[in-house]
Amino acid sequence: MSGGDYGDRGNRDLSIAKPGGMGEARPVREGGHEHAAPGGPFLIGEAMTGGYGRGADILHSCTIAVERGEIAVIVGPNGAGKSTAMKAVFGMLNLREGSVRLDGEDITELSPQARVRKGMGFVPQTHNIFTSMTVEENLEMGAFIRDDDFRGTMAQVYDLFPILKEKRRQAAGELSGGQRQQVAVGRALMTQPKVLMLDEPTAGVSPIVMDELFDRIIEVARTGLPVLMVEQNARQALEIADKAYVLVQGRNAHTGTGKELLADDEVRRSFLGG
């Protein structure tokens, strides 16, 4: 993209501008406050409407929720706004309408950093590790907001993903795709979040690695940590889902338990290939 008032006119000059690493998010500004909003699900993004910057709305009154101890998945066709919905819950884009509530508090006005402090852990789909830093430094950065001793949590992460302990002094960018995904999830777990949000954790990994990752995610969910997940592999995702949302063009199309949606004819026809 080189458009807009402050575009680069296609300039690729390495001697003046660093490529890569630049943020895309237009997060909620810092300084907002939460207020009590008791009742309702553990985490809910309700009737969310908004888009990036001054662009057109991508979400239209979209609602996503997850309860304690549940796995909730968001599925839908390409460009349905699945990732956007998740980013909206995390405060990575400004909502024009709607609200986000976590554990009895309205956090719509909080910046992403503040939401991390409130207990949200988020693993983006791509660029989800610090490639130039070691595995251990990645985990340390995950624990950035913690002032207490986080060595215990790190040990837990290493227990969950033993390969990471082996490679903890290696630059994360040198790891294989599946290992990088493990670093990414491990980084998010370091905050000891109250809810874990995963954006297509299995994108671009082999089927075997995918199965293993799903197993780990179920393992995490069994510890009582609610998991909200966007998935491209709709069938497998629905199989492990306690609750599922099908989004189409930024709107809720179908909602139900994983089993219900798997059984739903219309869902099968449009998204699961019959």
Binding site: N11, R12, D13, L14, S15, I16
Partner: peptide, 8 residues
């Protein structure tokens, strides 16, 4: 391989 026009 990369563009270095400014410094050049």
């Amino acid at each position: 391989r990369s563009d270095y026009l400014a410094i050049a």
